[in-house]
């Protein structure tokens, strides 16, 4: 939350009212990826909460990451994270990204996403249902709002 403190109220409002969501495949099996796409399409429709899918991480506030993070992707994941504007949040979607799941001891993965990026929220499931993904993003938004409010009161 420390990163939010220096931001103006406008930035916080923009972030929490309409988080721009990106999707990064860090070596997943597509199961979580299609559930993320399903969450965007009419049945589940994550846009109800203002979330808009962006093509590139440079436009994103929230990055939905799937997969355990492979060795070949590792430097690219770090670089993409650096390209995201502040404030930024990483959500680990799926069991692989959260814990490593079946890949935690395989030779060419980094174990779990935590080992590469600072993850803010974890959504378990193999794959998580679209409802779970929406729930995760909404919880993240709520907490960001509460955090910003607390900071504001402190400053007052």
């Amino acid at each position: 939350m420390a990163k939010l403190i220096n931001k103006t109220k406008l930035v916080v409002d923009a972030l929490t009212n309409s988080p721009f969501v990106g999707h990064l495949n860090c070596g997943s099996c597509n199961g979580c990826d299609i559930e993320i796409v399903a969450a965007l399409t009419p049945r589940f429709d994550i846009e109800r909460f203002g979330a808009v899918l962006q093509g590139t991480p440079r436009h994103c506030d929230v990055l939905l990451c799937t997969g355990p993070g492979t060795r070949q992707m590792e430097p690219r994941i770090r670089r993409l994270f650096e390209q995201m504007p502040e404030p930024k949040f990483i959500v680990a979607v799926g069991s692989c990204a959260s814990t490593g799941h079946i890949y935690q001891e395989t030779y060419s993965t980094c174990g779990k996403l935590d080992n590469i990026l600072p993850v803010t929220a974890y959504i378990p499931g193999c794959p998580p249902r679209p409802e779970a993904i929406i729930d995760g993003v909404v919880k993240l938004i709520t907490l960001a709002r509460q955090g910003a409010k607390a900071t504001e009161e402190e400053e007052d």
Partner: peptide, 27 residues
Amino acid sequence: FNHRGIEKAFEQRTWNQNLYLAARLCG
């Protein structure tokens, strides 16, 4: 970029356990 060497994770698995790994080859 997606290569994670699943084969070595199979090393300790029995025929039946491998079924669930095989399902996670692709979503």
